[in-house]
């Protein structure tokens, strides 16, 4: 045991008035009343609408489309935004990119991972997600299939994210509970995204786009 570890632990014990207590497994039981909302009271259609609304309020672009429109939509966005180099994470559904032709170069993160420089020089990243949270307009990534490692959604300046209706939960506690497995079992990193990168550091004026992707386009598939 390092000296400072012992010092700090002894100070803590002294501060709590239990120097003699060496049972390190028993905790003073806590009386925490979790009587706050655990689940949204909205129905699934309301949840969908709230998600779309609140994501838009962060000045992200949102569109509600059907599964069959998705491939064409991706082509159209790339064309409108002038995307020439599109990054694709491992495990993405093949149907999403099937419409893309020669004008868009697809950069894959496998088998060899893309370098930071390659990512920085790309135009956009297309991903799915783990969850959406309607109450806060948040997209949750857990490095699962179709999402990739964290740098992929960070360095490109434009993030196109596909969220399926069944992935959208009502309120934040529902999302936290769904993530238990990610964190406990696989210890994978979790990233929560609520709108594009922003700062309010200058006179508390909100400015979109500092270091993360400056543009976020969310395709809600129902």
């Amino acid at each position: 045991m390092s000296d400072s570890k012992e010092t700090i632990l002894n100070r803590v014990k002294r501060a709590l008035g239990r120097e003699d207590d060496n049972k390190t497994t028993t905790f003073k039981s806590a009386d925490i009343n979790r009587n706050y909302q655990q689940k949204s009271e909205l129905n699934s259609e309301e949840i969908l609408q709230q998600f779309a609304e609140r994501v838009s309020e962060y000045r992200a672009v949102t569109e509600q489309i059907s599964e069959s429109e998705l491939a064409e939509k991706v082509v159209q966005i790339c064309k409108n935004e002038g995307v020439e180099k599109l990054v694709i994470p491992p495990g993405i559904e093949t149907g999403w990119t099937k419409g893309l032709s020669g004008s868009v170069t697809i950069l894959r993160d496998e088998p060899k991972p893309l370098s930071k420089e390659e990512l920085n020089a790309s135009d956009a990243i297309l991903t799915g997600c783990f969850l959406g949270v309607a109450q806060t307009g948040t997209i949750v990534l857990n490095a699962g299939p179709g999402q990739g490692r964290r740098a992929l959604t960070l360095l490109p300046d434009f993030h196109i994210c596909v969220v399926k209706q069944k992935q959208i939960v009502g309120i934040f506690p529902e999302a936290v509970r769904s993530l238990e497995e990610t964190v406990r079992e696989s210890a994978r990193p979790v990233t929560m995204i609520s709108g594009p990168s922003a700062t309010s550091d200058i006179e508390l004026n909100r400015v979109e786009g500092v270091h993360g992707p400056r543009k976020l386009h969310v395709l809600i598939v129902s």
Partner: peptide, 17 residues
């Protein structure tokens, strides 16, 4: 309602970060 980015990491993850 939520700030733009939250990052949660648990130790190290192979190939990520």
């Amino acid at each position: 309602r939520m700030n733009p980015y939250n990052t949660f990491w648990t130790g190290t993850s192979p190939g990520d970060g």
